[in-house]
């Protein structure tokens, strides 16, 4: 882990440098415009300083976003409607609910598909087709439907959308995992006269665990994307997705960018937790340290 820090740092620094250059280039037009209107002739350093500190920059500079992020996460009370923790928590809830739905749905479908050849032929194509439909198009329909069915908050449709995106990686991995035991291992259980159920519990399920945990990392990220997308076209007023939309609609790039980075931080946190759980499970299952 320690060894990786050097290269990562280099990449991060490079991105920040490119970002600063981009901020300068993209915000310069507005600075020059203002100067022309005022009839002044700004020096290069004046232009540069101005591009770094515009309130409504086309591309806010990294330090501006960092400051806004710090303000939104640390300074604002978590109950405040402008706190990123508050919005992040709302998105987090939908992400977790969707993640749970995705795991349960993905595992259940995988089990059905592996145990039944007919289901393999009929269910799998639908699962694949489901992922080709743009979620943004589907989201409003899911909201309307869940409202009609009596869900009075946006949490339910958001969780469904998040689950809709996250079940697929779990399904695909679990099908592969449950089928991973080779002919010899199946023959071995046959010589013991094991039942189909015993083959499943003693061999297929434990053999699928590495596949399962690998898919969780993808699924949790997909779930977060689903929760955010679920907040975009649905008139949500709370959640990181809603913040992004508000930021873009009201011309407040700082709100948009800080929400974007808050989402990235949340994703990193979720993946870190999943990785930690994976390692813990690996240790319990005797994985080579």
């Amino acid at each position: 882990m320690r060894r990786n820090i050097g290269p990562i740092l280099v990449v991060v620094l490079a991105i920040i440098a490119i970002w600063y250059a981009g901020s300068f280039a993209m915000n310069r037009a507005w600075t020059m415009d203002q100067a022309a209107r005022a009839g002044t002739e700004p020096s290069f350093s004046e232009v540069f300083r101005d591009t770094m500190n515009q309130d409504r920059a086309v591309l806010p500079a990294p330090h501006q976003v960092a400051a806004e992020l710090y303000d939104g996460i640390i300074d604002k009370k978590v109950t405040s409607k402008r706190s990123l923790v508050y919005h992040g928590y709302i998105t987090f809830q939908a992400t977790m609910a969707g993640f749970a739905l995705g795991i349960v749905g993905g595992v259940a479908l995988a089990v059905i598909i592996v145990l039944s050849r007919a289901m393999d032929l009929t269910l799998m194509p639908w699962a694949i087709i489901s992922q080709t439909i743009p979620v943004v198009a589907l989201a409003p329909m899911i909201v309307v439907l869940s409202n009609a069915l009596g869900a009075d908050s946006l949490m339910v449709p958001k969780a469904i959308i998040a689950g809709y995106l996250s079940f697929f990686p779990v399904l695909v991995s679990m099908v592969a995992g449950l089928r991973s035991p080779d002919a010899m291992q199946l023959d071995l259980l046959r010589t013991y006269g094991a039942t189909k159920g015993q083959v499943f519990w003693k061999l297929r399920l434990p053999a699928s665990m590495p596949y399962f945990f690998a898919s969780l990392k993808i699924a949790v990220a997909a779930s977060l994307v689903g929760a955010i997308v679920g907040e975009l076209p649905t008139g949500a007023i709370a959640g990181l997705g809603a913040r992004m939309l508000i930021g873009s609609q009201f011309g407040e790039p700082m709100i948009m960018w800080s929400a974007l980075f808050a989402a990235a931080l949340l994703a990193a946190l979720l993946i870190w937790v999943v990785t930690w759980v994976e390692r813990l499970a690996g240790r319990l299952m005797g994985v080579q340290a």
Binding site: M184, Q185, P206, A207, M285, G286
Partner: peptide, 10 residues
């Protein structure tokens, strides 16, 4: 069998 085929998780 030819290979030991022990379950790695046991």
């Amino acid at each position: 069998f030819q290979a030991a085929g022990l379950y790695p998780w046991r």
